[in-house]
């Protein structure tokens, strides 16, 4: 899969996962890696940092049972709007490609 295209999809997937529940980095990695093979941990962390710097997610730290505090990500209002926009664009793209006769 094209890297830039994949990054966009990954962003959408991560935001979607966060819209369901708050997650910490490694949990997101595990979920994403089960969907996309060969996805690098650093790629996911970079996306998480980017989403956070764009103000689409919020951060908070939570104690783990036996280790350092875990950095949890939660989606905020702006992030939800961004995700909805993403989904709409994806649907639009799907419709256009379907009209062209491209089967998935």
């Amino acid at each position: 899969m094209n890297t830039q295209f994949k990054k966009g999809i990954l962003e959408m997937c991560i935001l979607h996962l966060l819209s369901e529940e708050d997650l910490y980095g490694y949990m997101i990695i595990k979920k994403i890696q089960s969907l996309f093979d060969n996805t690098d941990e650093s790629t996911i962390y970079a996306i998480l940092r980017r989403l956070n710097s764009l103000g689409l997610t919020d951060l908070y730290y939570k104690d783990s049972s036996d280790g350092p505090k875990r950095k949890y990500y939660s989606i905020n209002k702006k992030g939800l709007q961004y995700l909805n926009n993403y989904i709409m664009n994806a649907k639009e793209l799907y419709n256009i490609l379907s009209k062209l006769g491209i089967k998935f």
């Binding site: 490694y26 940092r49 350092p68």
Partner: peptide, 12 residues
């Protein structure tokens, strides 16, 4: 921030 992520990854 990056180092924290790597530390988390290593710990997990």
């Amino acid at each position: 921030a990056i180092v924290y992520d790597y530390k988390e990854l290593i710990y997990e």
